[in-house]
Design a protein around this nucleic acid. Structure first.
Length: 218
DNA sequence: TTATAGATTGCCT
DNA sequence: GGCAATCTATAAT
């Protein structure tokens, strides 16, 4: 299945999500974020993807969450105001993007795991070191942004550039937006790639969407 | 000060 | 399917 592309006008018309959207518990926010657009503006270049997979990480009571250790120099964004980007470097190679949830002082976030590229596919592919053509097979289109590290690379997300950025600010070059799209069916599974609290059903994805990471399920 | 595991990916057999 | 790459936070000397 090929991605469902948007026009530049379609991307610009989408309404930016406000702080109140993120000022809720991570499970509610994670579910609500599926189908929303993640948009980057790089000068005159616009890049956008539709969120199709994410995971909720709770506060200090969640052993798998970075907030579990309490407030540190690395995770301070999680304890700050909602709607801010928490970016960390993992395995010496990749960045992962989260958005902070809950009122200020309360930790919690959503990890973005995969998006369906909808605008700027050539630019994303270039950043990913891939060669783009509209007629690529699904397996190669998936490689653009299915996976937390791949998504970040496609959007040019780094810790230096984006950590602690307010994604709800009008000036931000990275934001989330609602274009009215609503996923029909959401699947819930355990989170991926963790060992602690690995049984908790806190991963969510759009059923049947080919850009969800990992093996094809449901 | 040194060791190790980690919210991953891509290349190898 | 297996495993190396390669940085950082945190635990262990």
């Amino acid at each position: 299945m090929a991605p469902q592309p948007l026009t530049a006008a379609g991307v610009r018309a989408a309404r930016r999500l406000s702080r109140g959207f993120f000022q809720r518990d991570p499970i509610t926010v994670a579910r609500a974020l599926l189908g929303k657009l993640l948009i980057r503006r790089d000068g005159r270049i616009l890049i956008a993807g539709r969120i199709v997979e994410d995971e909720a990480y709770l506060g200090q009571e969640d052993p798998a969450a970075h907030a579990h250790a309490g407030l540190t120099a690395r995770n301070f964004v999680l304890f700050g105001p909602p709607g801010h980007a928490y970016v960390y470097f993992i395995y010496g190679n990749h960045y992962c993007l989260n958005v902070s949830c809950q009122p200020e002082g309360q930790a919690g976030c959503v990890l973005f795991r995969a998006m369906e590229p909808v605008f700027g596919l050539a630019a994303m592919s270039r950043t990913r070191g891939l060669v783009y053509s509209p007629s690529l097979p699904p397996s190669q289109l998936r490689a653009i942004s299915s996976g937390p590290g791949r998504m970040c690379e496609a959007l040019g997300i780094t810790r230096l550039r984006d950590n602690n950025k307010d994604l709800t600010s009008r000036e931000s070059d990275l934001w989330l937006a609602d274009d009215g799209f609503c996923p029909e069916d959401i699947v819930t599974t355990p989170r991926i790639g963790i060992t602690k609290a690995a049984e908790r059903p806190l991963r969510f994805f759009v059923r049947g969407n080919p850009f969800v990471s990992g093996k094809r399920i449901a």
